[in-house]
């Protein structure tokens, strides 16, 4: 139960961070990627802010706690293998990110606007995930 409340609060704070930083606006995302045109460096500052904070907090949290407060063990990925799927998948993600100006978090947050773009994006994204999951079953 407590874990569900935590993840609700995390989602809420995350969404506020996205909205304040400007990342819920597709044109700002496209502007960041448009280095030969009307370059908008906002996203770089978002990443610097988030990574600077979590770079420190990650180490503090892992150092001061043997385990998470509501969970027996850490569930942080430990895989170090660079695979073709990692690179090809990330490349495909990058194309879609540029085309729509949305990544998953801002699109889900944007559903609260009840406007058509984020809704269409989220439905298509879920479609893409289901599509990929279904091809994996044949391997």
């Amino acid at each position: 139960m407590k874990k569900n409340i935590t993840s609700f609060i995390v989602g809420l704070i995350f969404a506020l961070g996205l909205g304040i930083s400007g990342m819920t606006q597709p044109l700002k995302v496209m502007g960041f990627l448009d280095i030969t045109g009307a370059f908008d460096p906002s996203l770089l500052f978002v990443m610097i802010g988030a990574i600077a904070f979590h770079f420190v907090s990650y180490r503090l949290i892992r150092k001061k706690n043997k385990s998470p407060l509501l969970q027996k063990e850490w569930m942080v990925p430990t895989n170090k293998k660079i695979t073709p799927a990692l690179i090809i998948g990330s490349f495909i993600f990058g194309i879609g990110w540029a085309l729509g100006g949305f990544c998953p978090g801002p699109a889900l947050t944007g559903l609260a606007s009840f406007e058509i773009r984020p809704a269409v994006f989220v439905l298509s994204m879920i479609g893409g995930m289901l599509l990929f999951n279904s091809t994996k079953r044949f391997h």
Binding site: G89, G96, L99, G100, F102, G127
Partner: peptide, 16 residues
């Protein structure tokens, strides 16, 4: 936006 969603869906799961 439809195409973007599909690409992001496939790409993020393939790329973990």
């Amino acid at each position: 936006t439809v195409a973007a969603g599909l690409l992001v869906g496939v790409g993020t799961i393939m790329g973990s």
